[in-house]
């Protein structure tokens, strides 16, 4: 009974925070409420026995998206005037959304009790052959590896576009909110945490995405400390870093195909090692992409390619 009380409190607070994040007056307040909403959601997921997701939501959903929104807030010097939508259209969309929500709630009520699905039964049978003990990692990197591979492609697409769109302006220096001392402590700490999360993903909550997010946080710290981040990297190295995760994944995936197996099949004896290899590559690429997405406005001067020395500097002309 007491759990039910906690559940109800949690859910009502979630709803209140959602409303606040959607309808608070200023954009800044909304972002803050959104971060609080995400953190509370992480608690709810921990309560629902989803520690992987609690970790990911806190690090990526609330943490990184929150940081992203906050940084975008600085950019938005003059907000766009709102579009004028016809009254009828607004009424119609509201009515349709309300109807859909109502139908959804009704459908959700009829769902329970759930019966044990086919997929989960097959998962329990196949877990011994997955190469890792932690079921979420097994699903992500083995049973449904194709999803994860395409997800890396989605991240790559976002990172490339962020680089393409970065306005041509120098990195602006602003007052560093972090002292060098703190950075020197934080950086190794974050790196070690990332490594630990990666390693532990095989048998406990954690894995490439959480580790990548923590590593990305290290770049954010560097950025806060006025480090120019990626601008000092050679552009070829940046391209390689971006490609690494997907490249390893595709390469390992093809390994067995050559020997007559399926795409993305791992030999049982080395599955654990291959999964760790893929995850390590994925972690680096994820960290790179997430921090690029966060750094956003700060361009790499030679992206995507060094202009030929004798020709016109087309990059400048284009931007």
């Amino acid at each position: 009974m007491s759990w039910m009380l906690i559940d109800l409190t949690l859910c009502i607070s979630l709803l209140i925070l959602a409303v606040a994040a959607l309808y608070a007056r200023g954009l800044q307040q909304r972002v803050v409420f959104f971060i609080a909403f995400g953190l509370l959601c992480a608690i709810a997921w921990a309560r629902l026995n989803a520690p992987d997701l609690a970790l990911a939501e806190a690090a990526i959903g609330a943490g990184l998206t929150g940081a992203l929104l906050l940084s975008a807030l600085n950019d938005e010097t003059d907000p766009q005037p709102p579009l004028t939508q016809p009254r009828l259209g607004r009424l119609l969309t509201t009515a349709i959304t309300a109807l859909l929500t109502l139908a959804l709630c009704a459908a959700v009520v009829t769902l329970f009790p759930l019966h044990e699905g086919i997929a989960i039964q097959q998962l329990q049978q196949q877990m011994p052959h997955a190469g890792v003990v932690h079921p979420v990692t097994a699903v992500l990197l083995n049973f449904r590896a194709w999803d994860t591979l395409l997800e890396l492609a989605v991240l790559l697409c976002a990172a490339l576009t962020v680089l393409n769109l970065a306005p041509a302006r120098p990195v602006t220096a602003h007052d560093s909110p972090l002292t060098g001392m703190l950075t020197r402590i934080l950086l190794p700490l974050l790196t070690v945490t990332a490594g630990y999360l990666l390693w532990t993903g095989a048998h406990a909550p954690g894995g490439a995405f959480q580790a990548g997010a923590v590593l990305a946080a290290a770049t954010v710290v560097l950025r806060l400390n006025n480090n120019p981040g990626f601008t000092h990297l050679r552009v070829g190295a940046l391209r390689a870093l971006l490609a690494l995760g997907l490249l390893l994944f595709l390469g390992v995936g093809l390994l067995q195909t050559v020997l007559g197996g399926a795409f993305l099949q791992y030999p049982p004896s080395t599955a654990g090692f291959l999964i760790l290899l893929i995850e390590a590559g994925a972690m680096l690429s994820i960290a790179c992409m997430l921090s690029l997405v966060y750094l956003g406005g700060h361009l790499h001067p030679h992206w995507p390619c060094h202009a030929p020395s004798n020709g016109v500097d087309t990059w400048k002309r284009h931007s």
Binding site: A72, L155, C157, V162, L165, F209, I286, G296
Partner: peptide, 17 residues
């Protein structure tokens, strides 16, 4: 979650430009 953060980053990058 990861797809959502990628999409948000993309939208913010376009808006920033």
């Amino acid at each position: 979650i990861v797809v959502a953060v990628a999409a948000s980053g993309l939208a913010i990058a376009i808006n920033r430009r």
